[in-house]
Design a protein around this nucleic acid. Structure first.
Lengths: 240, 240
DNA sequence: CAGTGGTCTAGACCACTTT
DNA sequence: AAGTGGTCTAGACCACTGG
């Protein structure tokens, strides 16, 4: 929490209203001047809030028309599982716990560089397997520095959405990420968990998530079975 | 082309300077106030240019410090080759022609859905292999609908940058893309071209590029050797 | 034509980093 | 203390969409 900025407050309000269908898909938001007047903010500040909604895919702006509600997509538009035609909805997605969160030291040869702060804090580690319609597609190894996350191991239930939990419990939001991707080969553990044979090709993805807390990063190492489902994403839409 | 805005001009200048090593990796750009003074622009306008550089991954801003040059990643911030530590510069990147551009019909089982317009136009097809320091890393199969691209097969030289060519010759710019990613296995052709053994894992990427021409899309099918170099990208960084 | 978003200016105060 | 980027204001003119 702490002191949120004006544009963040407006951004959150509008996002909430879009998700709550106050503004329906395809309709226009109040104009920048109207928002400026009603929220008692300068137009620049309103534009900053709208800009964030735009880059996250909630709205599209059109000169002369207005800000049009485009989708209720989640924030990060980066490489998620999709079927070839339709997106995989929550109905079809299951999560299985392989290892419950435990506090330990960081792996010796951790791929990403860690700050001294992170090194000293130790890490929380857990493993999940994600499935789509009973088909295991992703083996997910997550590492989190134990920085000011009281009672994490007690509170977090692996079955729930990790990002949602962080938001609701600690006000932590993911604002970006770096990722590295390789084609790799399933070892015995990965093969077992993903229903593959040892030596089958798997997608290996290392991710570093950036959060709204300045020095807090989250790390994931993913192994994906892409036999049936590809990883996919879109980019584009321009800028401020 | 046409009348560029002030912040676009500044953005392009800074990007060019970063790519030309005027500002080295890890160094700081001139401060917003300095740029504002030297370019004779308001600080807001300077911030808009820097903001675009940031969302595209060229710089990172740090309160109290400055704008730090982060990488020379290509414009479209989506999945490009990077070494583990340093970005791969143009000095280290070679292109080999495998098949020169030729006009033909579309493949029978083309992965992406094609419009009637595209179907009727036929396609230009060429194959390149990209290498980093003599190490082949990407087998690139490109398909372009033959829509109002006069003399393409005569004008385009495979050794030159494809996107740059489209921009300079036809004023076509890539503004976004969709991509699908799988872990796959090298067949005899791919293995030969990438210096792998048949059965080695490769990254398979199908891309559909969106351009500034409303109905013009470009298609690529990539096969990547990720033994030494990973594919990587960043997302996030906020806005104006 | 009035209304919209796109660009731009010239200020201001703040929190943060470095010296 | 000086300098940096982050936020915010109150204006202005423009190009574009709609009636």
């Amino acid at each position: 929490m702490s002191s949120a900025t004006q544009y963040q407050i407006l951004y959150n309000r509008l996002k909430k209203e879009i998700l709550a269908d106050v503004y329906e898909l395809g309709s226009v938001l109040p104009s920048e001047n109207e928002l400026s007047a009603s929220a008692n903010l300068s137009r620049s500040t309103v534009r900053q809030a709208l800009s964030q909604l735009e880059t996250e895919g909630y709205i599209v702006k059109q000169k002369g028309k207005g800000s049009i509600v485009k989708s209720k997509s989640r924030a990060l538009n980066l490489l998620s599982f999709q079927g070839f035609s339709a997106t995989v909805g929550n109905d079809h997605l299951q999560t299985t716990a392989i290892q419950e969160p435990e506090l330990s030291t960081w792996p010796a040869d951790f791929f990403f560089e860690l700050s001294e702060l992170e090194q000293g804090a130790g890490c929380i580690h857990f493993i999940r397997v994600r499935s789509i319609d009973e088909q295991a597609v992703m083996y997910e190894n997550t590492y989190i520095p134990h920085l000011n996350l009281p009672k994490f191991t007690r509170l977090f239930k692996l079955k729930t959405s990790f990002f949602e939990f962080l938001g609701k419990t600690y006000d932590i939001e993911v604002v970006g990420m770096d990722q590295h991707i390789w084609a790799s080969i399933a070892d015995i553990e990965i093969a077992n968990q993903l229903g593959l044979k040892v030596g089958d090709p798997v997608l290996k993805i290392y991710r570093k998530y950036h959060t709204n807390r300045p020095h807090l990063f989250l790390y994931s190492m993913l192994f994906c079975n892409t036999e049936k489902y590809a990883m996919s994403n879109s980019s584009g839409g321009v800028n401020a």
